Every structure is written in structure tokens, then in C-alpha cells.
Simulated assay, not measured.
Amino acid sequence: MTRNLIIVITYAVALVLIVINFVPIMRAVWKFIVLFKPFFMGIAVAFVLNRPCMAVERFLNKRLFKNRLKVLVRGIAITVTYLVVLLLITLIISFIIPELIKSIQVFLSNMGAYIDNFRDLTNELSELLGLERIDLSSLDKLILEYTNRLGSSLTELMPKIISITTGVLSFFATLVITVVFSIYILAGKERLIGQCKKVFSTYLPECLYKKGAYVYRVVVDVFNKYIYGQLAEAFILGSLCFIGMVIFRFEYALLISVLIAVTALVPYFGAYIGGFCAFMLLLMISPTKAIWFLVYLVVLQQLENNLIYPRVVGSSLGLPGIWVVLAAIVGAGVGGPIGVLTGVPIATVLFTLLRNDVLRRSGKQNVK
């Protein structure tokens, strides 16, 4: 009884100290993360490339080497994986980004005409509904002010060329260290995992070690489903959107398709956010095309969710939609765009652990 009381008091005091010193603790954690940023980035890159690397390795073992020369096979698989990634990055930089820049330049050059079309549309709607006309002159001033500010920002960047160069060099240095770490992790992942298991099993109580191993399995499973599932969904949805927009001759097909694909990285409602932005863009060009695009996107989204995604990706995260929205909002408030992307899988991990614990305690599921 006394021992349990001491444990409860210790936990309570520790919790109070953490709450009181939450900001300094988070700053210390952030400094630690920044200090070892290349290492953590290497782990993230190795985690993302692990499944493609394993697929290449299985193919080589089955077709060519017949499960011999495992070290050589692992090296070839890692090399092929990085060459494919480098090829994809080269294709994006060489073909997609220039077209995107061209589309953005065309859109900005036609901005005045688009604003006039949008003004005429709002005036017609106002007359139809019997409302007063909406004054959009402030929108013109806002766009002009933003353009001037962008130009002055570019001018102010010129004296900072030295710091920019230093930042670029630092980025490449971090990139090289990250790639080296990721290659080392991919090459010896079994040995590294085995060493970690041995250390934790030696110094942790058996009960705590088993719980930690269970949490690790849940985290790996959730993040695997999230990363590959959302990347596959974004690629499929963006590609189908681009094909359809080219067939139906919608304007800015590549720009809008990339926008849809990027926003689709957020589960459930991300593509609809991108679709709304695309709808507003097309609305300034042609209200009729904007409505037809919205109809096409809704049909495409339903087709992708109910037919293509389950066959290509498989099971989803299993997190209810309301919690996805809440996780994305909290993640955005804490970590910005990165918080939006990481908030959903983190919430899924917590939801899975809580659900399995409730089922285990109620006797409906035996979770190890």
C-alpha cells in the first residue's frame, strides 16, 4: 500500500513539473532534434524507402541470385532504389516544375481579366438575388500591394546572397549526411533492430519491454499504411484528374492536378480542399467550366475511394473522419504543414492503442 502511494505521488509530482516547465522542455526537445536532424531525417528516409528496397531485394533473390550473396543483393537493391528516386526527382525538376512555373506565370499575367470576370459574376448574382453590388476594388489593391511586396522582397534578397549561399551549402551538407545515414540503416537494419531489442530487453522489465514492442509494431504499421496509402492515393487522384482535365479541355490542368494531389495527402477531406481552391480558380475563368469541374471531381473522388483505392492500396487507417479533422487542425496549430501530415498518423496510433486496450480490458480481444 505504501509503495503504491509513493509511486502515485511520484507520478503526480513529475506530471506537475512537466506541466509547469512544458515550454522549456519542448525547447530542449526541439534543440535535441535540431542537433541530430540529419540522423532523424536519415531514419525517415530509410523508413520511406524500406518497402521499395525490400521489393527489389525479393525480386533479385527470387529471379537472379536464388537467395545467395545476400550482402551483394542488399547493396544492389539499395542502389536501384536510390537510382529510381533520383530519376523521379530529375523528371519532376525537368518536366513538371517548369510547366508549373509557366502555368503560374500565365495565371498571374491574366489575373486582371480573371478579376474582371469574377466581378461581373458577383454583380450578376447580386442583381439576381436583389442584393447590393459587392465592391471588389479592395481586391485589386490587395493584389497590387502583394505584387509590389513580392518585388521588394526579391530586391532585398540580393544583398543577402552570401547567407543564401551558406544556407544552400548547409542544405546539401545535411542532404549528404542524411543519405549516408539512410543507406547505412537500410544496409544493416536487421542488425540495428536486433541490437536495440537486446539493449531494451536487458535494461527494461519484461512487462515494459513487451508493451514497448507492441507500441513499436503499431507505430510502424500505422505509418506504413499512411505513407504508402496516401502517396498512392495522391498519385492516382492527381493522374486521373490531369487526364480528365486534358480530355475535357479545362484550363491549368497540370497546376490544378498537382494541387489536388498535394492536398490529397491529408486523408478524407484534403482533396476536397484542393478541389474548392481549383473551383474558385476556374470560377474566375468560366463559371460553367468551374461547375463541370466540380461535378467531375466529385465523381472521380467517389470512383477512387470506392473502387480504385481499396484494390490498389488496401485497408485504410481506420481513424474516424471527425478525428482526422481534429488531428489535422491540432497538427496545423502545432507544426504547420508538417503537423497536418504527421498529426493524422500520430492520432491514429493513439486511437489504435486506446481502442485495443479497451477491447482487451473488456475481454473482446487479446492484444499482446
Score class of each variant (00 low, 15 high):
residue 144 L to A: 13
residue 145 E to Q: 09
residue 145 E to F: 08
residue 146 Y to E: 06
residue 149 R to S: 15
residue 149 R to L: 07
residue 150 L to M: 12
residue 150 L to A: 15
residue 152 S to G: 07
residue 153 S to V: 08
residue 153 S to I: 10
residue 157 L to C: 05
residue 158 M to E: 15
residue 158 M to D: 11
residue 159 P to C: 01
residue 159 P to L: 05
residue 162 I to L: 12
residue 162 I to P: 10
residue 163 S to T: 11
residue 163 S to Y: 08
residue 163 S to C: 02
residue 165 T to F: 03
residue 167 G to M: 06
residue 167 G to D: 05
residue 169 L to Q: 05
residue 169 L to A: 03
residue 170 S to E: 02
residue 172 F to H: 12
residue 173 A to Q: 11
residue 174 T to L: 04
residue 174 T to M: 05
residue 175 L to R: 04
residue 175 L to I: 00
residue 177 I to G: 00
residue 180 V to P: 13
residue 181 F to G: 00
residue 182 S to K: 01
residue 183 I to K: 14
residue 183 I to G: 04
residue 187 A to K: 05
residue 188 G to W: 04
residue 188 G to L: 05
residue 188 G to V: 04
residue 189 K to A: 09
residue 189 K to G: 05
residue 190 E to D: 15
residue 190 E to G: 01
residue 191 R to T: 02
residue 191 R to P: 03
residue 192 L to W: 11
residue 193 I to V: 08
residue 193 I to D: 00
residue 193 I to Y: 10
residue 196 C to Q: 02
residue 196 C to T: 14
residue 197 K to V: 03
residue 199 V to I: 09
residue 200 F to N: 02
residue 201 S to N: 11
residue 204 L to F: 11
residue 205 P to M: 01
residue 205 P to E: 11
residue 207 C to A: 14
residue 207 C to S: 13
residue 210 K to D: 09
residue 211 K to V: 03
residue 216 Y to S: 02
residue 216 Y to G: 05
residue 217 R to S: 15
residue 218 V to H: 09
residue 220 V to T: 13
residue 220 V to D: 12
residue 221 D to P: 10
residue 223 F to S: 07
residue 223 F to W: 13
residue 225 K to T: 09
